[in-house]
């Protein structure tokens, strides 16, 4: 045991030094940024965990609490960034349930984040038609614009999200302003040409 004692002593000393160093770093950096904690409700939403989300949804204030970028839990529920169509579809179904839950809990669906985005704009960008439908059913506004003057429909058109465009047009969104964006989007993303052609036909009908 005697021969191990100096090694253990060194190990313990290094552990203590490291821990003190880490604690000092933690205090310094915590002071530099206001909010370093994550919101358990948002984590539950991003994990598509309905039970955990329900547990964290105590009242309407909780459902509308924004993060440092002004994003509310319902905006997080409307945001998905996946390229795989199958995974996106699965997530869309789960998130639609969460949006309904948040709406029932008193979430304001028309709040805007720092850039003026609403939950509907996030859904339009993400390409989640079921979430879009839930938001529209619960009174999401179609006419809000962001800092750059984009509406939810304009965002969905640029992204080539046909189903979302269809849902928004069905609710009476104005397709004229979005038509101009189509040409530019087609030139940038030729791989989405099929979607853009379908959108062009929807916009011309609408």
């Amino acid at each position: 045991m005697k021969k191990y004692l100096p090694i253990l002593k060194d190990g313990f000393t290094l552990l203590v030094i490291s821990t003190i160093f880490v604690s000092v770093c933690n205090q310094v950096f915590k002071g530099l940024k206001k909010n370093t904690q994550s919101d358990p409700l948002v984590t539950a939403i991003l994990q598509d965990n309905r039970d955990s989300a329900k547990e964290n949804l105590t009242d309407a204030t909780r459902a509308n609490r924004p993060d440092e970028l002004g994003r509310t839990p319902v905006m997080w529920a409307a945001y998905v960034n996946l390229a795989d169509a199958k995974q996106l579809q699965e997530t869309d179904g789960k998130r639609a349930e969460l949006v309904a839950l948040l709406a029932q809990s008193g979430a304001d669906l028309n709040l805007q984040d720092r850039d003026g985005w609403t939950a509907l704009m996030w859904a339009a960008w993400s390409g989640v038609p079921q979430v879009t439908a839930r938001l529209l059913e619960n009174g999401a506004n179609l006419t809000h614009t962001d800092r750059q003057g984009n509406t939810a429909l304009m965002i969905a058109v640029q992204r080539g999200n046909t189903e979302v465009v269809k849902a928004l047009l069905a609710q009476g969104a104005d397709g004229k302003s979005a038509l101009n964006l189509l040409k530019d989007a087609q030139a940038k993303y030729p791989n989405r040409n099929e979607a853009y052609q379908a959108i062009a036909s929807l916009l011309s009908q609408g």
């Binding site: 970028l69 994003r71 945001y79 960034n81 850039d115 985005w117 996030w122 960008w125 993400s126 962001d146 800092r147 750059q148 984009n150 965002i155 640029q158 992204r159």
Partner: peptide, 13 residues
């Protein structure tokens, strides 16, 4: 590089 920044880059925000 927060989660969701790409949406804002896409739309010129």
């Amino acid at each position: 590089s927060y989660d969701g920044i790409r949406a804002k880059i896409d739309t010129g925000n």
